[in-house]
């Protein structure tokens, strides 16, 4: 099997795992079993393409729409689901819920859901790595919404001044909660803000996982060799609502249909069939395997105990 096909199949499996995870949580929410989550449906290629370009020693900061980043990094979906369901076996002992899951052991640190919070923390994480002579770069995922926060500009300015090896990844998913990006952002693209700070950057089709991956590898290489920041913008679309449930009544039907036709998983499936000659039933098997794994994860989460009430006041102070 050629290398591109092997890699594409790995991406495909990971993207399916993410989609299955999110869809399971949607189902659990609709059944009244889980609280609503901010899903990453439609943005799987952005997460998988970037995270696959990172090294184990690299560090990741993410935000409220983090499940794809965590699963792409290899987080255990069972412990993630347990966290969402408030169980003691969750990655954060049930104290995070879906919104701010961090997994320090995987290098996914300090997830903040204050939009832009991750941008204020990433400079410090990168500064630690630099001053403590630790290997690896630091990547931060944020959205077009966060780029409208003042902290985005403070972060870029400081990273440029202090020469911090940070890969900024703007996931421009066209939505800032319930407001379309066009209505809230004067610039057409987030990457436009990089040049004034002397930061190199580019934007890429965020629904094409191979394009994202190639761009992210190149960007990460620039950060590693220059030890300076880089801004990569992935142009994608939030296919579901801001959080579950959300009827998306405010979404333009034609725009949504256009992006649904460019569903990143469908695009990759087409490519695998047409370019690499993978049979449809093989792809179906991959999808089935992902769904089975998520069913196991949900079973683990649902069978896990709730935290003891004594946990209420632990972990407040070190």
């Amino acid at each position: 099997m050629n290398e591109a096909k092997t890699k594409a199949l790995a991406h495909f499996e990971r993207m399916h795992l993410i989609r299955a995870y999110e869809e399971k949580l949607v189902a659990l929410q609709q059944a009244g079993t889980a609280a609503g989550t901010c899903t990453s449906v439609g943005q799987e290629a952005a997460a998988v393409g970037v995270v696959a370009a990172l090294a184990p020693e690299d560090t990741i900061l993410t935000n409220h729409r983090s499940a794809a980043h965590l699963l792409a990094r290899g987080a255990n979906p069972a412990r993630m689901m347990a966290e969402v369901l408030g169980r003691a076996t969750g990655y954060c002992k049930g104290k995070s819920g879906s919104l701010h899951i961090s997994v320090k052991d995987l290098g996914v640190v300090l997830t903040s859901t204050i939009v832009g919070g991750e941008l204020s923390l990433v400079t410090g994480v990168s500064l630690s790595k630099t001053m403590l002579h630790e290997p690896g770069i630091t990547t931060v995922f944020f959205g077009d919404g966060a780029s409208c926060e003042g902290i985005f500009h403070e972060s870029l300015n400081l990273a440029a001044l202090w020469k911090l090896p940070i890969l900024y990844v703007a996931e421009n998913n066209q939505w800032q909660a319930f407001v379309h990006r066009r209505e809230a952002m004067a610039a057409e693209q987030v990457v436009a803000h990089a040049a004034p700070y002397g930061i190199p950057g580019r934007s890429v089709d965020g629904n094409d996982v191979e394009a994202v991956h190639a761009a992210a590898r190149q960007a990460a290489e620039v950060v590693r060799t220059t030890q300076r920041p880089y801004l990569l913008e992935v142009l994608t679309y939030r296919l579901r609502g801001h959080f579950e449930p959300d009827d998306q009544a405010y979404v333009d039907r034609e725009e949504l249909a256009r992006w649904q036709a460019r569903d990143p998983i469908r695009l990759l499936a087409d490519r695998l069939r047409e370019r690499d000659g993978v049979e449809a039933h093989e792809l179906a098997l991959v999808a089935e395997r992902a769904r089975a794994r998520i069913e196991d994860a949900a079973a683990f989460a649902l069978a896990s105990p709730m935290p003891d009430a004594a946990e209420l006041t632990t972990d407040v102070y070190a």
Binding site: L119, S120, L121, T123, G124, V125, L132, I151, S155
Partner: peptide, 15 residues
């Protein structure tokens, strides 16, 4: 904002 955020990020990761 970024002074304090940088401090928090640095504190959590070893400084």
């Amino acid at each position: 904002a970024v002074i304090a955020g940088t401090a928090a990020g640095a504190a959590a990761t070893g400084l």
